[in-house]
Simulated scan of single mutants.
Amino acid sequence: MSTPRFLTLPPGVSVKQIETPLGSFAALEALPVNGVAERWPALLVPGYTGSKEDFLAILQPLAQAGRRVVAIDMRGQYETPGPDDPAAYTCAALGADVAAVAEVVGQGEPVHLLGHSFGGLVTRETVLKGSAKLASFTLMSSGPGAIVGPRERLGRELLAELPEHGIDYIWANRLEPDAINAGVPEEIIAFLRKRLLANNPTGLVAMAHEVLSAPDRVDELARCGLDILVLYGEHDDGWPPELQAEMARRLDAECVVIPGAVHSPAVEAPETTAHALTRFWNTAEARMIQRG
């Protein structure tokens, strides 16, 4: 889990509900100071056990470039409810949700789509389905397929423990002690507990299965025709940095490594991350307009 930089909303950021034919999604929205969005909007999708708050530190800087920026909780995450049906939490089903949200956020304009970690696997399905009007695609700290390394081991352990012990047990006996040992402030630990326990239990299990078994679809994605950015921390402990770099080569995508960051660049290096995203989005936007 990542730790949001702020527990209160920065100026210019507000709470929203995005109403779609597939349901209502909790969101945070940032607008330029003057309230006028002159550039195409962006939609940010969090990872497994994450939420819209993982993007708090970059929402305002991204909006100041002249665009509306929206971050959501996916179905079953934190403040977006979800059903007790595992089929609702496949990457394909969640990707359809994202497409529906993108249509509302875009209001007829193309949308810059970003997926963080597991959110990258979900948003990849949105791109491949081709049902959303997109301006660009960013994979942040995500990979070509199922997660590997230390986070894979943690995921399999959680998957084994969740059905038997429940999420309260996992929080009290694994995640909270880890946060305390890492020196996470008490108020943020309280938020992380509240967020985790708000997740739909069926969704947590089903999403874990998805992130641990996702196929490599990079070759398909390479044919999507969008400008793609692969962005990750130099010390990423999710998908290894070298694997993400290789994915960028296979995609013929721009690749940005965020110095000092681990698995959550938007939290760990917000200024650098926001600058990289704004530059990429502005360039992709100009190219798309030029192509007509």
Rank of each mutant, 00 (worst) to 15 (best):
P4F: 04
F6A: 03
L7M: 12
T8S: 15
L9P: 00
V15I: 10
V15H: 11
Q17W: 10
Q17I: 07
I18P: 00
I18R: 01
I18N: 01
T20L: 06
G23D: 08
A30C: 09
P32E: 06
N34S: 15
G35M: 04
R39F: 03
R39E: 05
R39K: 14
G50M: 03
K52L: 13
D54Y: 11
P61E: 04
L62H: 12
A63K: 01
A63P: 07
Q64C: 07
Q64W: 07
R68S: 11
V70C: 09
D73T: 07
D73Y: 05
T80D: 10
T80H: 06
G82C: 12
P83Y: 01
D84F: 05
D84S: 08
P86V: 04
A87I: 04
A88D: 01
A88M: 02
A96T: 09
V98T: 02
V98Q: 01
A100L: 04
V101S: 02
A102L: 01
G115P: 08
S117Y: 02
L121M: 15
E125H: 05
T126N: 02
V127Y: 04
G130T: 03
S131Q: 13
A135D: 07
T138F: 12
M140G: 02
G143N: 10
A146W: 14
E152T: 02
R153Y: 03
R153I: 05
L154K: 07
R156G: 01
E157C: 02
L162E: 12
G166I: 05
D168S: 13
I170Y: 03
I170E: 02
R174F: 08
D178M: 15
E187G: 03
I188R: 13
I189H: 06
A190I: 03
F191P: 07
K194A: 15
L197Y: 02
A198N: 10
N200M: 08
P201W: 06
P201E: 05
P201A: 06
G203Q: 00
V211A: 02
V211D: 00
L212F: 05
P215L: 09
V218Y: 09
V218H: 11
V218T: 15
D219V: 13
D219R: 13
D219K: 15
A222E: 06
R223F: 04
C224D: 08
L226C: 10
L226V: 12
D227K: 12
I228C: 14
L229D: 06
Y232M: 07
W239A: 03
P240I: 01
L243I: 10
Q244E: 15
M247R: 11
R249D: 13
R250Y: 13
L251V: 11
D252W: 05
D252A: 15
E254K: 11
E254N: 04
G260S: 10
A261V: 12
V262M: 11
A266Q: 15
E268N: 07
P270S: 10
E271F: 01
H275E: 11
H275R: 14
F280C: 09
M288I: 00
M288F: 04
M288S: 14
